[in-house]
Amino acid sequence: MKSYKVLFVGSPGSGKTTAIRTISDVEVVDTDTKVSDSTIKRKRTTTVGMDYGKLSLGEDKVLHLYGTPGQERFKFMWDLMVSDLANDASALILLVDNTRNYPFRDIDYYLSEFWDFIVKRHFIIAVTRSDLAAEPTEADYQNRLKEKGIFAPIIFIDARKSMDVMDLVVSALNQEDDIDWAEISHRVAVTELKNRNPDPNSPQFEWLRKTRDVPKISIIEAAMQVRGISGATHLDNNQKLLDTSSNTLECNELFSSLAKLAAAIENKAPQLEQVRNISLHAPQKDSISVFLEPDQALGLLTLPALTHKQIRQQAEDLLQWSDNVENTQEA
């Protein structure tokens, strides 16, 4: 039996689990659990270990589909997968959620994290949710990769559609010329049709129930559901208050004055890099952090036990998912 492997990576909610589930012949082994962080803004459950699915490519060939957890706090799983489980994978497919405010930043991040793995394998970028956000366009992505000197297929997909995901798989294994892709695609399409009306007692039905639309909540509401965050304030590009969980004036004024300071530094010393974060700490006292983007800022009041890495990851995802800014190509 000849085995092939493909690894799906990408930000939380980019569609990794859905893509694997869409084409897998077997019930996907997932490690989904109820969301307990900023991902609540996007979905009810999230992968905490890994996803695994399998697609038969004929009598003597099989494709193993692996998906990493999206959150950076499960990075140990990324390391485990690239060094062991999926070390012999033929390709890495990066799923990029087009509705995130700074999707190019995700590409830069995952390129940097998986670079050693990518250079030896096929690398494909799959853009998801473009039905909800038309920009950046394919040309924008191509220009961005060109600037970075990277040549990779960019395929816009709907991770819920089997034929779209099959496009990725065909591209990932395009060097294999003895696979009957027409037969496999037909089989996958038939399975997809069958799954449209699943038995209410089946795992497929349970999956659809879990992934039903998530009620829209603000980034402040999402932030306040993260364990360890005790206050959050969202500011616009002029450091004006958009939304806050805190009615205490002094805290909001502090967030605003720190964001203003960042703007002042950029005006005074334009030769320096952009101010991304300002934070204040003391033992036994809540930390104060302001995360800055060109078009918005997020202030967080967090318990002292939360590490910088944990705070930063939550803040970055919240800023990627805020609704009040235009989808931008800023990195």
Binding site: I265, L272, E273, Q274, V275, R276, N277, I278, S279, L280, H281, A282, P283, Q284, K285, I288, H308
Partner: peptide, 13 residues
């Protein structure tokens, strides 16, 4: 807590 903040960070790039 009346303790004052004694540590600050500024991330540039």
């Amino acid at each position: 807590n009346i303790q004052a903040y004694d540590e600050a960070h500024l991330q540039l790039g």
